[in-house]
Design a protein around this nucleic acid. Structure first.
Lengths: 116, 116
DNA sequence: ATTCTCATGTGTGTTTTACATATAGGTGGA
DNA sequence: TCCACCTATATGTAAAACACACATGAGAAT
């Protein structure tokens, strides 16, 4: 931490792109570029870094949370389609629970901030 | 990001110790060790690393967000007492606003997760 | 031909967090 | 007296998370 409060304060949730990816994939299988497009709607302003997105997707696959296959026969560049596994679905549930706890902590903070 | 989802999912807010410190100091001046003790109540399970805490405090001071003085005449080791400045108070306000936005994003995520 | 979008990736630096250790005053007990 | 322990402040460094830059290639449009 070089100079706290020096750059804009954003209060982002750590690794939020991970649950966001899992949630999108829980709705339907998709490829990376598609997810990159859909992520900002979920994460707010926070755009996900392209490079890191693909790394996260492969890491998720290594952990058996998603599976992938190359989409054949379509026009344009080849697409790697990702699909959520049941393990991945369980991790998404864990993230949701953790986010609820996180929200409670934020509420506590704001309540105390507002002087109650 | 080495292996996402491999360790416990905690959904922490980035640099949350910073607004927590500012909030505590907005209530009353305090020294580092005292803040270290009071922080877990604000941040939930997240304990703040001692070493980093003192670094954050000095960084906050460099930015003019807090001031410090050595407490004289007390028994025990010398204490450096920190106090919030008006600039620091403004940063706390910014953090509160950012945390409200963060909470909204979490709400949106959870709403979508719950299938609405 | 070259420019553009779609699509998947690697390389590397910066920021943030975690873990370990150092120093020192004071207290209580063997 | 020596030792363990608590208070208090601080540095060193590794690991994790994030940001920025660039590489590669298919296909479509100009």
């Amino acid at each position: 931490m070089v100079r706290p409060g020096h750059w804009g304060v954003r209060a982002r949730v750590e690794r939020f792109s991970e649950p966001a990816l899992l949630l999108l994939l829980s709705e339907r299988p998709a490829h990376g570029y598609e997810l990159l497009d859909a992520l900002p709607a979920l994460t707010g302003e926070a755009r996900v870094d392209m490079g890191n997105l693909y790394r996260v997707l492969r890491a998720l696959e290594e952990d058996g949370l998603v599976t992938s296959r190359w989409e054949a026969g379509e026009p344009g560049p080849a697409k790697r389609i990702y699909e959520l596994t049941t393990t991945g679905r369980r991790l998404l549930d864990e993230w949701a629970a953790a986010l609820r706890r996180s929200r409670e902590r934020i509420d506590m903070f704001l309540d105390r901030f507002e002087g109650r």
